[in-house]
Design a protein around this nucleic acid. Structure first.
Lengths: 215, 215
DNA sequence: GCCTGTGAAGGATTTCACAGCC
DNA sequence: GGCTGTGAAATCCTTCACAGGC
């Protein structure tokens, strides 16, 4: 019996893991799908179904053991080890990403940065050395990197993605304002705060609480 | 005949608009759903169906007029005017958001910033004056603000969201690493690059190209 | 001949509801 | 009594396929 796990399910697991980590920190030892669902605005059935793709982690009548379930999720997601990241594009945005300290404590280490501006090459940001993009292939050939972050201007973002893929990278976080393409077997996630805002203005235009209606 | 427009559709419209803007910039005047779909990794039928919720914008045998469709989408999304934004939390992340120049050219003006650190209050970042969060309610009462950005530590993020909602804000962009709750009629979008990475590591664990399988 | 707009079909995801167990 | 795990039902979303118009 072979079943594929829907991508939507995979995308929710980190959200569950984050909430469980917060519960663990607060000293909670058990949680029901009901309680977790309320914290996350998700139905309890959704949580149970999602988890059931991977095994049976709960106890009837009790709920889930927080540290155990968290450890399980971390293992499933591959968060029980460190991942090595490089970033291409160290303009204003790229610098902010490197300086943003949020990746390191979650197991993602920014190993190196690349830019095409030779003024920047040789300097460092937050202890990360900046290299020239021309060296990207040779660098990737000799250094294991798992994930690439793209923060170059949109105009050169697709070719940057292509370079990373060519160098063997199979996971890319794209901050550039384009829909970049990757071949099968490579994951990509797009982060664009402007798009997020633009989908909210649709609802802002309408009176509060009224959902889009058309006659 | 009344029909609701699915939120997934609304979320794709800004992506279409962005691509159309790029086509317009490149001087293209017409585009088919086929061509647009290839650029965006979306099926042509999806694009046509999405647009059909709002009207009939294409010409059979030709496709869509790029500037016209772009203008239509901008109107539908409310991007044909400027929106006023405030940000709460001006730590490292908040500063980067204010200094990031990507919102202004898209019609989003950061009018003001708030923080609880009195060291910061009174100073400015990129011409945006920083005020004390205690003044948030009175400020919102006298100044029209449409969208709030939350970039405070996770621990105080929900209360910050509550404050914004109390002040009448109906659209919130949340950068804090929690799932924040809002009442009906208020939109919220969560941006968390760590979650995006964590969903990719699931696939990294497995051999390239092979999707999750379970016996 | 090409391409849109759209009902209808198909597929995917979510929710229900309950047996089973603590 | 409370809560999980899960088939079945319901809902939601995507894709098909073709009539109609350029």
């Amino acid at each position: 019996m072979t079943l594929e796990i829907p991508e939507v399910v995979i995308n929710r697991l980190p959200v569950y893991a984050r909430a469980l980590a917060q519960l663990a920190e607060a000293g909670e030892t058990v949680v029901s799908s009901q309680a977790l669902g309320e914290a996350l605005d998700v139905t309890p059935a959704q949580i149970r179904k999602d988890l059931s793709y991977f095994g049976r982690f709960g106890k009837q009548g009790r709920g889930y053991n927080v540290p155990t379930l968290l450890a399980k999720l971390r293992e499933i997601l591959g968060l029980d080890r460190r991942w090595r990241v490089c970033i291409v594009g160290v303009g204003r945005l790229g610098q902010a990403i490197v300086e943003y300290g949020g990746f390191e404590p979650q197991g993602f280490t920014i190993m190196s940065a690349f830019d095409s501006d030779s003024e920047l090459v040789g300097t460092s940001i937050a202890d990360v050395e900046i290299r020239h993009v021309d060296e990207l292939q040779s660098y990737l050939a000799e250094t294991r990197i798992d994930i690439g972050i793209v923060s170059v201007p949109g105009r050169v973002a697709q070719e940057t993605v292509d370079e990373l893929v060519k160098g063997g990278i199979r996971a890319i976080l794209n901050y550039a304002p384009i829909t970049a393409h990757v071949p099968p077997g490579v994951s990509i996630r797009h982060i664009d705060p402007v798009l997020a805002m633009q989908s909210m203005t649709f609802y802002l235009k309408r009176p509060a609480g009224v959902v889009a209606i058309r006659e």
